[in-house]
C-alpha cells in the first residue's frame, strides 16, 4: 500500500507542477516577451518537483526494503531474488524485471527533474521545461503505478524466491542498466529546454544552457553502452561485445544524435549557425531515447534484452508520437526565430568540419534506424520479415567511422571562420606520418587493406589529439613557467570542454584500434575427454579434469584447462557450465585470458554427464579486445573532465590576489 500510495502522491505533485509552472508565466502584449508574473507559483512548482523525487525515492526505498528483508509476499520480490542472493544482486534485483525497471526509470527522471528545477540560473527557461519534465513524469508514474505495479502482493507467500535471472549475475549488470537509463532518460532535459526556448521565444542562448544537460546523459549513455558490451562479452558466451542487436542499436542512435549536438552546439554558440538543426538534434535524441525504451519494452523485435516485455509498449508508442509531434510542431512554428545569424565563410573551417561530421552522424543514425526497423517494415509491406545482420552494419558503418575520424582530426587542427589550408596541412603532417609508420608494417604483415586502413585512421586521430594536447601544454608551460605536468593540469582546468573533448577523441581512436582486431577473430569447437590436448591459434590446451559440486542455487561443472604456449604453461583457465535449479536452465561462465595482443576466450558449451566427463569447448581468439576497454576508459575520463573540471571552474575560488589592484577597485566601485 505504502509504495503504490507514494507513487500516486508523486503523480499528483507532477500533475500540479505540469500545470502550475507554465501558469506562472505570461506573454506581455506590447513586447511579446514572456515574463514570470507569479514567482510564488513557479517556486511552488519547483518544490513540487522535489516532492515528486521524495515520493518516488520513498517508493523505491519500500521495494528495496522488501528485497533486503526477503518479503516474498511481494510478487516482484519473489520473482527476482532468493534467500541466497548476495547483497549487490539483491540491490540490482530492483531493475531485473519490467515493473522495477519502470520504477528505476521514474526515480532517475525525478532526480533529473528535481536537479533541473532547483537551479536558479535557468529561471526564465524553467516554467515550460518543468511542465515538459512533469508531463513526462505523469506518463511514467501512471504506467508504473497503474499498469505495471511493482508492489502487487501474492495470495500465497512462498518460502523462498525464484532468484535473479542467471544471465544477470554479473557485476556489469549492477551498473549497466542504471547507467543506460541515466543516459536515455537524461535526453528529456535538453528536449524540455528546447521546448521551453521555442514556446517562450528564448532561442538565443538555450544551447549554452543545454550543453551541460546533454553532456551528463551523453556520458552516461556512452558508459552504459560500453558496460553493456562488457556484459555481453563476459556473460553471453558468443565471443563478441557488440552484435547490432535492436536494443543496442536503439541505445546507440540517441548517443550518435547527442554526439552530433555536442559538436553543432559549439557552432551555434560561436557563430549563431545551425540553430534549426540543433533543435532538431535535441528533439531527435529525446525521441530516439523513447524509441529505444519502446523497442526494449514492447518485444516487437527479438533481442537478447528480453528480460522485460509487457503491454506497456503500446503506451510508449503513444508517448513517442506526442513527443515527435510536439518537437517537430514547435520547430515549424518558430522557424522564423531560428534563422542563422551568420553564413559559412570557408570550407576550411571548424564549422565546416563540424557540419560535415553532423551529416555523417545523421547518416549513421538513419542507417542504423533502417537496419533496425527493416524487419518491421518488410513485415508490414510484404508480410514476411527480412532482417539484416552484423555484416550489413559493419559494411555501412566502417566507412562512416573512417570519415568521422578524418573529420575529427581536421576539426582539431583547423580554426574558426577561415582556416589556412597550409597551416592545417602543417599540423597534420606529423600525425599522418605516425599513422603511416604504424599502418605500413601492419599492412605488410597482415595483408589486409581494411585492417591497415582502420589502424591508419585511428592512429591519425590519436596522434592529432595527443599532439594538440601536448602542444597546448608546451605553450602553456612556456608562458606560465610551470612544469609540464602542472601546465597539463592547467589546460584541463582552463578549457575542460576542449581538452576533455580531445581526450574523448583519443579514447575513441584507441577503441577503434581494439575493434579493428575483429578482422582477425578465429573460433573453434572441440569435443574432448579429460587428459586430452588440442591446439588452436598457436596455443595448446590441456583439458585436465571436470570438478562437479553443488552450490546453494546451482549445480556447478567446472573444467580445468591448462594453456600452453611454445611448450610452456602460461595460464590455467576454469570455464564453467552451471545448472541453475530455480530457473531450470544451464548457464556458462566464461574463462578469459586477456593480454594486450589478444584474448583467449573459452566457453564450456556442453558436458557428457556420464563417466567420460568429456566436454565441448568453444574457443575464441579475439585480438586487441583489451584496447576497446582501455579506449573507452580514456573516453569516459575525457567526458568526466569536460563535465567536472568545468563545474569546478564555474564554482571555483574568487580571483587570485595577484589580480591587478585596478580590477579589484573597479569591482568595488561597481558594487557600490
Amino acid at each position: 500500500m505504502l509504495g503504490r500510495g507514494l507513487l500516486g502522491l508523486g503523480l499528483a505533485f507532477a500533475v500540479y507542477a505540469a500545470v502550475a509552472a507554465p501558469a506562472s508565466m505570461r506573454r506581455e502584449q506590447d513586447t511579446g516577451e514572456f515574463t514570470i508574473v507569479r514567482p510564488d507559483l513557479l517556486d511552488s512548482a519547483r518544490r513540487a518537483m522535489v516532492a515528486v523525487l521524495g515520493c518516488v525515492a520513498g517508493a523505491a526505498a519500500v521495494l528495496w526494503y522488501a528485497f533486503f528483508t526477503r518479503d516474498f509476499s511481494y510478487s516482484y520480490v519473489a520473482l527476482n531474488t532468493s534467500r541466497s542472493a548476495p547483497p549487490w544482486y539483491t540491490f540490482s534485483a530492483l531493475w531485473a524485471g519490467m515493473a522495477g525497471s519502470l520504477l528505476l526509470w521514474c526515480l532517475i527522471l525525478s532526480v533529473y527533474a528535481a536537479a533541473f528545477a532547483t537551479r536558479r540560473r535557468l529561471r526564465r527557461l524553467q516554467p515550460w521545461a518543468i511542465s515538459v519534465l512533469a508531463g513526462t513524469q505523469v506518463f511514467f508514474l501512471t504506467i508504473t503505478a497503474g499498469l505495471e505495479n511493482p508492489f502487487a502482493r501474492l495470495d500465497v507467500v512462498p518460502a523462498d524466491g525464484r532468484g535473479l535471472n542467471p544471465l544477470l549475475h554479473s557485476p556489469g549488470m549492477v551498473i549497466h542498466p542504471p547507467m543506460l537509463y541515466t543516459g536515455l532518460i537524461g535526453m528529456i532535459v535538453p528536449f524540455a529546454l528546447a521546448v521551453s526556448a521555442l514556446v517562450t521565444r528564448q532561442t538565443k542562448n538555450w544551447v549554452r544552457e543545454t550543453r551541460v544537460w546533454i553532456l551528463v546523459p551523453w556520458l552516461a549513455l556512452g558508459t552504459g553502452l560500453v558496460l553493456g558490451g562488457a556484459w555481453a562479452y563476459t556473460e553471453l558466451g558468443w565471443g563478441g561485445y557488440w552484435g547490432w542487436d535492436p536494443v543496442e542499436n536503439a541505445a546507440l542512435m540517441p548517443w550518435l544524435a547527442a554526439t552530433a549536438f555536442l559538436h553543432s552546439a559549439m557552432v551555434e554558440e560561436r557563430r549563431g549557425m545551425l540553430r534549426i538543426w540543433n533543435v532538431f538534434l535535441v528533439t531527435s535524441a529525446a525521441v530516439l531515447a523513447t524509441f529505444g525504451t519502446f523497442l526494449t519494452r514492447s518485444g516487437l523485435l527479438s533481442s537478447v534484452h528480453t528480460f522485460a516485455q509487457s503491454p506497456v509498449g503500446k503506451w510508449f508508442f503513444v508517448f513517442l508520437g506526442i513527443q515527435t509531434i510536439v518537437g517537430i510542431g514547435l520547430l515549424l512554428w518558430r522557424l522564423p526565430d531560428l534563422r542563422s545569424t551568420a553564413a559559412l565563410d570557408s570550407a576550411v573551417s571548424k564549422e565546416a568540419a563540424f557540419l560535415a561530421n553532423n551529416l555523417v552522424f545523421c547518416a549513421g543514425v538513419l542507417l542504423v534506424l533502417w537496419g533496425t526497423l527493416l524487419p518491421l517494415i518488410t513485415q508490414a509491406v510484404f508480410g514476411s520479415q527480412l532482417a539484416v545482420g552484423p555484416p550489413f552494419f559493419n559494411r555501412v558503418m566502417t566507412p562512416l567511422g573512417a570519415a568521422l575520424m578524418v573529420l575529427a582530426s581536421l576539426g582539431t587542427v583547423v580554426g574558426w571562420r577561415r582556416g589556412s589550408p597550409r597551416r592545417v596541412a602543417r599540423r597534420l603532417v606529423v600525425p599522418a606520418a605516425a599513422a603511416t609508420a604504424v599502418a605500413a608494417p601492419v599492412l605488410a604483415a597482415k595483408h589486409s587493406v581494411a585492417f591497415a586502413g582502420m589502424i591508419w585512421f585511428a592512429v591519425l586521430l590519436a596522434a592529432t589529439s595527443a599532439a594538440e594536447i601536448a602542444r597546448a601544454a608546451r605553450v602553456r608551460s612556456r608562458l606560465t613557467r610551470l612544469g609540464t605536468f602542472a601546465a597539463f593540469r592547467g589546460l584541463f582546468a582552463r578549457n575542460p570542454r576542449r581538452y576533455g573533448g580531445y581526450l574523448v577523441h583519443l579514447g575513441v581512436a584507441v577503441v577503434v584500434i581494439g575493434m579493428a582486431g575483429s578482422f582477425f577473430r578465429a573460433q573453434t569447437e572441440v569435443d574432448v575427454a579429460p587428459g586430452s590436448t588440442f591446439r588452436f591459434a598457436g596455443y595448446s590446451f590441456v583439458y585436465r579434469r571436470l570438478d562437479q559440486f553443488a552450490a546453494p542455487d546451482k549445480d556447478v561443472n567446472l573444467a580445468v584447462v591448462d594453456l600452453y604456449r611454445r611448450g610452456r604453461r602460461i595460464d590455467t583457465l576454469r570455464p564453467q557450465l552451471n545448472f541453475h535449479r530455480n530457473w531450470d536452465q544451464p548457464q556458462s561462465e566464461i574463462a578469459i585470458r586477456t593480454t594486450p595482443v589478444a584474448d583467449i576466450y573459452v566457453v564450456l558449451a556442453a558436458i557428457d554427464p556420464g563417466q567420460a566427463q568429456s566436454g565441448v569447448f568453444r574457443v575464441h581468439y579475439n585480438p586487441l579486445v583489451l584496447w576497446v576497454w582501455v579506449g573507452a576508459a580514456i573516453a569516459v575520463l575525457g567526458g568526466l573532465l569536460a563535465l567536472l573540471a568545468g563545474r569546478r571552474r564555474k564554482h571555483g575560488p574568487a580571483p587570485a590576489p595577484a589580480e591587478p589592484a585596478i580590477v579589484r577597485e573597479l569591482d568595488r566601485v561597481r558594487v557600490t
Partner: peptide, 30 residues
Amino acid sequence: MDVAIFLLVCVVLAIFVARPLYGDRARPDD
C-alpha cells in the same frame, strides 16, 4: 502503520510545496 506514514508524508510534502504561496515569500525574478 503504512497508512499513518503515508498520511504524514502527504501532509509534510503538501506544506513544503504550498509554502511559497502562503507566507514564505518567493525570491524576485532574476
